[in-house]
Design a protein around this nucleic acid. Sequence first.
RNA 1: GCUCCCUUCGUCUAGAGGCCCAGGACAUAGCCCUCUCAAGGCUGUAACACGGGUUCGAAUCCCGUAGGGAGCGCCA
Length: 480
Amino acid sequence: MARVDAGGRGRGSATIRAPMSIVTRFAPSPTGLLHIGGVRTALFSWLQARRHGGKFILRIEDTDRERSTDAAVRVIVDGMHWLGLDSDEGPYYQTQRFDRYRAVIREMLAAGTAYHCYCSKEELEQMRAEQTARKEKPRYDGRCRDRQAPVAGVPPVVRFRNPTDGEVVVKDLVHGDIVFRNAELDDLIIARSDGTPTYNFCVVVDDADMGITHVIRGDDHINNTPRQMNMLTALGHVPPAYAHVPMILGPDGAKLSKRHGAVSVLQYEEEGYLPDALLNYLVRLGWSHGDQEIFTREEMIALFDIGDVNKAASAFNPEKLLWLNQQHLMRARPSAVARYLKPHLARLGLPTDNEALIEGVIVAQRERTKTLKEMALASRFFFTDAVDYDAKAVAKHLTADARAMLVTLRERLAALATWDAPAIHAAIETFAAELALGLGKIAQPLRVAVSGGTVSPPIDQTLALLGRARTLARLEPGRY
RNA sequence: GCUCCCUUCGUCUAGAGGCCCAGGACAUAGCCCUCUCAAGGCUGUAACACGGGUUCGAAUCCCGUAGGGAGCGCCA
């Protein structure tokens, strides 16, 4: 396991920053909706910054104007906000920095670290085809490297002049040293023939300008890293520290896709997950702290270190997420949960103004529901008198005998001196003893009459929360 | 094809040579608790990819093999 210390220092050429302080960034491209894979990368970057009192920057990499969408940008911004992954700077948009990229390209052209290439796409395609036929790695052969004169009428692309000898060592915080021979690297295009800069180049300029000290990204970028480091070096910068984190697989072990996992992160809000639970689940994918499974946000910040992240990809396990969500539901302060439950109540058309009732419901329901959506659904009868009576439950539990029994029980409840769970419990127990019935014979009919179904929190707690007036109203004969 | 990365229970992981005939968690099976559903408790099934080394001793170090993955774009 790599234990390299954070030595990278970005010497921003546009802005000057405190050299020893950590700066990380999350740089998604808005070509698809932000999903949990991206969120975990964001989380790791955010944690690394927060842990070390550094800065976290959000940067939208939208240089692919064809495929970038506003909807995707919105999901990134809204998703990060929902999750509480606040950034200290940004969001920056690469499309707003084109002038800067062009300026750097001009510098490189002048310095000779970049050059014009007039090869046509067809020509390049043919070159690659020949190389593939020879079982070689397809790569640009550098035929325009030393070209002196432009080709009339052909708008050139700009290529980076990659060193041909020696090697590049990526001191990766999670993988350890990774060595690449420069001979394996070809001259990549940094500006298209229409003048727009390409991804690998923009990243380099931005990371340098923004003073990024730790680049934390998916390990699908490992192969881009040596060239980015070469460009950074060519521009006179010291490359930052890199940490390539493994990807997240679907539950079936295959690449994350729609249907499982690769849905918008906002989908998890809709399904009733707590931000902290999702973050807790995600942080444990590739990272651990002994046997601890449950982490508060504060604990994650205090304990996380990018150097402790695993190298192997991990599969997304929805069941464990569900379990963790409930664990957080049970541990969080009810007032904190209330904030997130309200939207779900509202979606069901239920009132959200009774804070005391909402918090009571949370306490009563949290150990029997795994999501907020489920909790809201199971708690409808607390908020509305329009109770849905389950026909099967009514038929089974509200028999003639039971109905008669409830009439008497209603009187007992009406006569109670105090209306709280212990008093209600005592009354029901006494009543059951008198009738020589098991508690279940009383509780189930009562539960169906009051909630409409066979499942609810303990009956005494349920009635206490519902209140005397509503309880008695629901026990009115003919009501159910 | 070439380059690079990865490999402990079904899944997430602990494990930095003896504490490991491998621990925890989810899931799963059984039991307990019990007014429903849960939550909780206890118990069980279940893994070091394979082969060689090194060593008194290897899940841990080295070398191979196999299997997965990524990249090789005027995509990011």
